[in-house]
Simulated assay, not measured.
Amino acid sequence: MSLPHALLTSLSERAGSGSELARRFDKSIGFFWAATHQQIYRELARLEQAGWIESLPAETGRGRKRAYRVLPAGTAELRRWVAESEDPRPQRDALMVRIRADAAVGPAGLAEEMRRHLALHEARLAVYKSFEERDFANETASRARQLQYVLLKGGIAQEELAINMAREALRILES
């Protein structure tokens, strides 16, 4: 996946300023595709130059933000990209290599880092569960909402898997 397509997706959901987009990105797509605010602003300029988005006239007054919206060419590009075939990419996770290294060289003090990761995954799972309760409880959902829920359930499953793996690794590391 690429950052331009992630931004086109977010802007397709709702037009907004760069700062609004960065905030929304941090609370949604940012859970599975990371980007700094600086990267987002740079990419918005590129998307506008490509004719995929346009900036709307800023509201009058000082410090008003320019809002962006997706143009038909941007929607066409997003549709093209969605239909494109792509193989899954191998996971890149330094903690996995650390576990393998600990197995190769013997105890190396990995338990504390594993506890830290466990806490991070538990915290993210709690956030995801709160999203589920807040956004998807007792709802007759549209197709779009159903697909968003599929993503959320995937995130929940990943966090539960990471928690189970961290607990199992900790059990071994601490024995």
Rank of each mutant, 00 (worst) to 15 (best):
I40W: 04
A104K: 09
L7K: 07
A67H: 13
L44P: 04
D93T: 11
S12N: 05
L21N: 03
I99A: 03
P4H: 02
W81D: 07
L95M: 13
A34T: 13
A94E: 04
R46V: 08
R89P: 06
L71H: 08
I53W: 01
V105C: 09
A6R: 04
V70R: 07
I40S: 01
A22F: 09
V70L: 09
G74H: 10
R14F: 03
M96W: 07
E13S: 05
A15P: 07
I29E: 14
I99S: 00
S12G: 10
V82A: 10
Y41K: 05
S17L: 06
A58G: 11
R92V: 13
L71W: 01
L56F: 03
Y41F: 12
D93R: 10
S19G: 02
L71Q: 12
R46F: 00
R62L: 14
A58K: 13
A34P: 09
S17D: 04
G63M: 08
P72D: 10
D26S: 15
M96Y: 08
W33T: 15
G51K: 03
G74I: 12
A22K: 05
E48M: 05
S17W: 01
L44Y: 00
I99G: 01
A45T: 07
I99C: 02
T9N: 05
R23D: 14
V97L: 04
L7V: 06
G74D: 08
A108Y: 02
E20N: 02
